[in-house]
């Protein structure tokens, strides 16, 4: 008993040493392992884009470059990619504009209904996608049946219903990210501008807007990636239209063409390059 007490008096307690070790290495080791885990399926996708398979791209059959030479070779692959890009850009544009205006109203103004508006913005994010998809499908089908009956039109599910749905679920995410940026602004900067006799409009365009812009750009990137990769809502409201995730999912039943791997991995590389360039430009600006 006494020897133990003496022993601990000479070196730090076990807890302290474990903590030291944890603080030193453990977190970083786990972090690297988790990052590898995140990338595992991306590597897999990349490797199997070179597979010289016969029927289905599951077993490794040898190396080939033919899928990279002809990325649009699989029927519908590139069409679906173009559709996804169009829907992504369009819904990003609209959702970013609408969401930014809402964020300004919520952060910068005091008015009746502010609390209710906050909740209205929050609830779509707390609603599972499948419920959003199911409810939108309901109004589109019911609405189109009635309109087509009254006016003899031929409205149906497709490009525009997907776009409307994507704008809807992107708005909340835009509001949240622009709001965060707006709230972290130092109000003294704007006060200083007004002390220097800048009018409200000049203050807004010369001070406020440039400071909020990174938040808006971030929100737009978020909206685009949410829209581009959405499958669940899209699968409900798409009708016969095919986006890239839907193309992959549908062709999965017959065996995914390696062109999907080529396109998926290329999007990864392009996005990574854009983000890294953005980071470098951002860092250069800071200096």
């Amino acid at each position: 008993m006494s020897t133990q007490t003496v022993g601990t008096a000479y070196r730090p307690s076990l807890g302290k040493r474990v903590q030291g070790w944890l603080a030193g290495r453990f977190a970083m080791i786990v972090a690297v392992l988790v990052l590898l885990y995140l990338f595992l399926p991306v590597f897999y996708t990349f490797i199997f884009s070179f597979n010289d398979y016969r029927k289905s791209n599951i077993e490794w059959r040898g190396f080939t470059l033919k899928h990279w030479a002809n990325p649009c070779g699989a029927a519908g692959a590139c069409d679906s990619l173009v559709t996804s890009l169009e829907i992504g850009l369009l819904s990003t544009l609209v959702a970013t504009m609408l969401g930014t205006l809402v964020a300004f109203a919520l952060v910068r103004h005091r008015f009746r209904g502010r609390g209710a508006s906050n909740i209205l913005v929050f609830v779509p994010m707390a609603t599972p996608e499948i419920v959003l998809g199911a409810s939108l499908l309901t109004i589109f089908v019911n609405g189109f049946t009635q309109l087509n009956g009254w006016f003899g039109t031929d409205l149906k599910l497709g490009f525009w219903t997907i776009t409307i749905a994507h704008i809807m679920f992107c708005i909340s995410f835009v509001v949240v990210s622009v709001k965060a940026r707006l709230q972290s602004l130092d109000p003294r900067l704007e006060e200083a501008a007004q002390d220097l006799y800048a009018g409200p409009a000049e203050t807004f365009w010369k001070i406020t807007f440039p400071l909020v812009l990174p938040g808006i750009v971030g929100a737009a990137l978020l909206a685009f990636s949410l829209s581009f990769d959405d499958f669940i809502i899209t699968s409900f409201v798409s009708g016969n239209e095919t986006t890239f995730p839907k193309f992959v999912y549908v062709s999965y039943l017959r065996g995914i063409p390696a062109q999907a791997n080529v396109i998926g991995f290329s999007m990864f590389v392009i996005a990574l390059a854009l983000v890294i360039i953005g980071q470098i430009v951002g860092n250069a600006r800071k200096k």
């Binding site: 990052l35 995140l38 990338f39 595992l40 399926p41 991306v42 897999y44 996708t45 199997f48 990636s225 990769d229 499958f231 890239f244 995730p245 992959v248 999912y249 999965y252 995914i256 999907a260 791997n261 998926g264 991995f265 999007m267 990864f268 392009i270 996005a271 990574l272 983000v275």
Partner: peptide, 15 residues
Amino acid sequence: VIAPFFTSFILRTIA
């Protein structure tokens, strides 16, 4: 952390 998002999540799940 963000990068894997850009490969379609369906594609990664199938992987």
